[in-house]
Design a protein around this nucleic acid. Structure first.
Lengths: 336, 336
DNA sequence: CGCTTTTTTGAAATCGATACCAAAATCGAT
DNA sequence: ATCGATTTTGGTATCGATTTCAAAAAAGCG
């Protein structure tokens, strides 16, 4: 593999001159520049990233962490981030955490070892205090998550209001027995609205209480996030003597599973059970009953965080470091 | 950031000794080993990857290229690869090519610059001759694609036979007017079966000819790969005076779009139009008419290539360098 | 043309780890 | 205790780039 000195030798100049040209710095005569450019293409030379990193030069690369790339919400989010990063001429690598702290730390090690200039975290597994320590090595952005730190670049949607609006929509249409699904495993279903660790559940509860209702423990499903999970949820609902009349699925995936299973069990949606999705993915239009769901502006979120991170990397001053996007309900046919 | 000499100083030993411990080489006394281990944790030391890479040590990282991560087929494939790579204690980074040669070269540059030990290519944009040159810098595996090179590690499914079986299935059920969709843009619909650049189309044509049929130009759709594309395909089919009686969708995504649009246009599936999917994704079970489709063993493919690449990296001898997985049709309800 | 100022150029130090080689310490056997 | 063999340890060159600093060349000016 060709090195910078090979190029220098072939072009008949010093390595310093070659380096200047690579990093298009001033003070090079056009004649030598041409000589070097020639030698570079002739040798198929490309600078060894490792060597540059050792000198602390940037890598022009951003890492993005997601829990599972198979979740369409995250693959869309990553696609949006990467598209914008690409426009700003940053490379992107995706790291899955699988919900594991160690994998998340892998991505942060990339930062520490100069392999990437920034990490955009679309999921947070470790304690923020631990994560924040890595920001001495590079930039950390947060996307689709919330941390109580006014310095950090952060973009997320207003989950609380979104779920409030969705729940309110169901209540206004006359539904009173609302089941609630979430992908979270460590959610606390607390009576005290201040002590909840889920924005969505908080919004749900707030809406419910406006109608003087309290949630039913039996109708709360945790750790559901896939189509198969949705099918299982419906099976459990179908087997209840006291069934909910509507279910808030937590994602379009889960909603799709619920509706598919309802179809096989001959349970009519929305007549016998209304289903409210979340995300507004393409999938929501192809199920048997197109989903009434809560739209998340995935592309806007991805674009925003990518641009903010790129701005910061380039030293631009950033006016607002944290942006919150609104959510809204999209009416289709899974709710009567 | 702590360096190896910081550790050496704190532990009161030389950098060589520290290096030996990091790479657990022989010839270190337990006493010093303990001292160094202590110092390392105390400083929160982790070796700078860039520095190691410069000495040619491996990165224990594999890059995976895919065209679009938003395509569920590829996100599942990547997930399978990463799961296996993880078991073998390799880190994984995902690089999207967006069908662009330059992005693919980015991933190969990672190889050249020692940032990754291997690249698994799940899509191929550049000429193989060009790609192959990078194999002097590291290992290149091919997945879900075919290249005529017996040396390269390669795992893919038998698309020709799969499509042959699917087409045969439709023909045996009495369908004769078969539309064909593909995501490819540069496909050649040639009469000469030898000169085709699509394995799937070759299988389709072979089956058709066994029934003395020839494909209709009007019923061939290229560059369709998303749900929205499928919806568009059905609109065009619905507007034809001479309609096909079955459509081979090319992917479950497209099939789902076709079925959804058929539902809104009141066109009965499978009575008026049969739809054959491809991939057998979870999605295929949640559409209005669950998809009869061709199952791709995504996880087996991903596991296989990841294991082969890991084997090769670890210097194990590999008996079969190329494996071809069989495809089979899964019968559900979108074909009568 | 001589002198200062500016632009171009190259030599050498540096980043953090690895690896070779020689020096020091330990061990074994007489 | 002595000598040779073996194990443990440390000094230093090295990887390929960037960067500083000083020297060389070119340009500007009276």
């Amino acid at each position: 593999m060709a090195t910078i000195s090979d190029v220098a030798k072939l072009a008949g100049v010093s390595v310093s001159t070659v380096s200047r040209i690579i990093n298009n710095k001033p003070h090079v005569s056009p004649r030598k520049a041409a000589l070097v450019a020639d030698a570079m293409t002739k040798l198929g030379y490309s600078p060894l990233q490792a060597a540059r990193q050792m000198r602390g030069s940037g890598s022009q690369t951003i890492a993005v962490t997601v829990p599972y790339i198979t979740n369409p919400f995250f693959s869309e989010l990553v696609a949006a981030i990467e598209r914008t990063a690409d426009e700003r001429s940053y490379k992107t690598v995706i790291v899955q955490t699988f919900g594991q702290k160690s994998h998340e730390l892998n991505a942060l090690e990339f930062l520490k070892t100069n392999q990437v200039d920034a990490v955009i975290m679309c999921a947070i597994e470790n304690d923020w205090d631990l994560i924040k320590q890595y920001s001495q090595y590079g930039l950390i952005g947060v996307c689709n998550e919330y941390v109580a730190d006014p310095d950090v670049l952060m973009v997320h949607a207003d989950q609380e209001s979104g779920m409030y609006a969705g729940t309110k929509y169901l209540l206004n249409r006359g539904y009173r027995k609302l089941a609630f699904c979430t992908g979270q495993q460590d959610i606390r279903f607390n009576d005290n609205i201040e002590d909840l660790n889920s924005d969505r559940y908080r919004g749900y509860l707030r809406a419910l209480r406006e109608f003087d209702l309290e949630p039913s423990v039996e109708w709360q499903f945790t750790d559901v996030s896939t189509i198969a999970d949705g099918q299982r949820v419906l099976q459990r609902i179908a087997s209840m003597k006291d069934r909910p009349d509507a279910v808030i699925a937590g994602s379009d995936q889960v909603a799709a599973g619920i509706i598919a299973e309802a179809q096989t069990l001959q349970l009519k949606v929305p007549q016998e059970l209304a289903v409210l999705g979340f995300d507004d993915q393409p999938l929501s239009q192809v199920v048997a009953q197109p989903l009434t769901t809560i739209h998340q502006p995935i592309h806007e979120i991805g674009d925003a965080i990518a641009n903010m991170v790129a701005d910061e990397l380039e030293g631009d001053t950033i006016d607002t470091r944290q942006v919150i996007m609104p959510l809204s309900v999209v009416v289709r046919q899974s709710v009567a």
